[in-house]
Measured scan of single mutants.
Amino acid sequence: KNALMQLNEIKPGLQYTLLSQTGPVHAPLFVMSVEVNGQVFEGSGPTKKKAKLHAAEKALR
């Protein structure tokens, strides 16, 4: 199970927000955030999926 699945089991129905998309078309950088218990966690990556995963990993720490 990855961090997204684990976080969804603990806190179902979380909303992930796209904060920014920067970089060239062939190498974009997405920044996504998720709010858990009033705290906002951000993650970035080359795809929205990876950015969401990194945000979930930070939220689980």
Rank of each mutant, 00 (worst) to 15 (best):
T47N: 08
V31K: 14
R61F: 11
A51M: 02
P12R: 08
G13W: 04
L29N: 11
M32I: 09
N2M: 05
L19P: 00
P46M: 10
G38V: 01
P24H: 05
G13V: 03
P12V: 04
K1Y: 06
P24F: 04
L19T: 14
G13Y: 03
N2K: 05
Q39S: 10
K49W: 14
T22H: 08
A51E: 03
R61K: 14
K48R: 09
F30V: 08
A51L: 00
G43A: 06
M32R: 02
K49S: 14
P46W: 10
T47W: 00
L18F: 09
R61I: 12
V31Q: 15
K58S: 11
N8F: 06
Q21E: 12
L60I: 10
V25F: 08
P28H: 13
E9L: 14
E42F: 06
E42M: 10
G13C: 07
P12K: 09
A51G: 03
A27Q: 12
L60H: 00
K52P: 00
L4M: 13
N37Y: 07
K49E: 15
M5T: 15
Q15I: 11
K52E: 05
K49P: 07
H54A: 13
S20Q: 12
F41M: 03
Q6T: 13
Q21K: 12
R61W: 11
P24E: 14
L7K: 00
E57S: 09
P24Y: 05
A59F: 02
A59C: 10
A27D: 12
K50T: 10
A27N: 10
N37G: 10
T47F: 00
V40H: 09
P12Q: 08
K52A: 07
E9Y: 10
Y16M: 05
L29P: 04
Q6A: 15
L14T: 12
H54W: 05
V31Y: 09
Q39L: 10
L19R: 13
G43L: 00
L19H: 06
K11A: 10
L18H: 04
V25S: 14
Q21M: 09
V31H: 14
L19G: 05
S33N: 14
T22F: 07
K48W: 06
G13L: 04
T17E: 11
N2W: 03
Q6K: 15
V31W: 10
V31D: 03
G13P: 04
V36M: 07
A3E: 05
K1T: 08
P24C: 10
T22E: 12
R61Q: 14
T17S: 10
T22D: 09
Q15Y: 06
E9D: 11
K49G: 14
Q39R: 09
K50L: 13
Y16C: 03
E57F: 04
G45S: 00
K58E: 11
M32N: 03
M32V: 11
K58Y: 06
K1A: 09
K58Q: 15
A3L: 12
G43Q: 01
E57H: 08
Q21F: 07
L4K: 07
G38K: 07
K48N: 02
K11E: 12
P28V: 03
H54K: 14
A3K: 12
L53R: 04
P46H: 08
E57I: 08
L29G: 09
E57G: 07
E35M: 08
S33E: 10
N2D: 12
L14H: 03
A55I: 01
H26G: 08
K48Y: 05
A27F: 04
K58V: 13
G38P: 01
Y16G: 01
A51W: 01
M5K: 15
M32C: 10
V34W: 02
L7D: 03
N8T: 07
V40N: 12
T22L: 08
K49I: 11
E42A: 10
T17A: 06
A59H: 02
S33W: 04
Q39K: 10
L29M: 14
A27Y: 07
L7C: 02
K50C: 14
A55M: 01
G43C: 01
Q39H: 10
K11P: 02
G23M: 04
K52I: 04
N37C: 08
Q6F: 08
G13S: 06
K49H: 14
Y16K: 02
P12D: 03
E42N: 06
L18K: 05
A55T: 06
E9K: 15
H54M: 13
A51T: 00
E9A: 15
E57K: 11
F30C: 07
G13I: 02
K48E: 11
H26T: 12
G13R: 10
L4A: 07
K52S: 07
S44A: 09
G23N: 03
T22P: 06
K49R: 14
P46I: 08
A3I: 13
Q21A: 09
K58I: 13
A59D: 00
G38C: 06
K1R: 11
N8H: 11
L14P: 11
R61E: 14
A3P: 15
L18G: 03
L60D: 02
G23A: 04
P12F: 04
S33Y: 06
V40S: 11
N2V: 04
F41T: 04
L19V: 15
M32W: 04
V40Y: 10
V25P: 15
F41N: 02
L19W: 04
K52W: 01
G38D: 10
A3D: 05
H26M: 07
L18I: 08
E9I: 15
R61A: 14
P46T: 12
A3W: 15
F41Y: 10
E35S: 11
A56P: 00
S20R: 13
T47S: 12
V40Q: 12
Q21V: 11
T47R: 01
V36S: 03
N2T: 12
A56F: 03
K50F: 06
Q39D: 12
E9V: 10
K49F: 15
I10E: 06
P24S: 11
G38Q: 06
M5S: 15
G45Y: 00
S33M: 11
A56M: 01
L29A: 11
K1I: 15
L18C: 11
P28G: 05
K58F: 06
V36W: 06
L19F: 06
P24G: 13
P46K: 13
M5Q: 13
V31N: 09
E57P: 01
L29Q: 14
K58A: 12
R61S: 10
V36I: 12
F41R: 02
K48M: 13
M32L: 04
K49N: 14
I10V: 09
E35F: 07
T22Y: 08
H26F: 05
L14K: 03
L19I: 15
T17C: 10
G43N: 02
S20G: 11
P12E: 04
L60M: 10
A27M: 10
K50V: 12
P12W: 04
L14G: 04
E42G: 03
M32F: 13
K11T: 09
L60R: 02
P24W: 04
R61G: 11
G23D: 07
H26Q: 14
K1Q: 13
K48Q: 12
V34I: 07
A56C: 05
L14A: 11
N8K: 13
H26Y: 04
T47A: 02
E42V: 09
P24Q: 07
K58M: 13
V31P: 00
A51Y: 00
L7A: 01
H54I: 11
M32K: 00
M32H: 03
F30A: 01
G38T: 02
A3S: 15
A56W: 02
L14R: 07
L29K: 14
N37L: 08
G23Q: 05
K50R: 10
V34S: 01
L60V: 09
P24A: 08
H26I: 08
F30H: 06
V34L: 07
Q15C: 10
L60C: 05
K1W: 10
P24M: 06
I10R: 11
F30E: 02
K11Y: 12
E35W: 05
N2Q: 06
E42P: 02
F30R: 02
P28C: 05
L19A: 11
Y16V: 02
Y16I: 03
V34M: 05
V36F: 09
H54G: 10
A56T: 02
M5H: 14
G43R: 00
N2H: 06
R61L: 15
F41K: 00
L7G: 02
E57M: 06
F41G: 01
K49T: 13
G43K: 00
T47I: 00
I10P: 00
N37T: 04
Q6I: 11
I10F: 08
L29T: 13
A59N: 00
A59I: 06
S20N: 11
T47V: 01
Q39V: 11
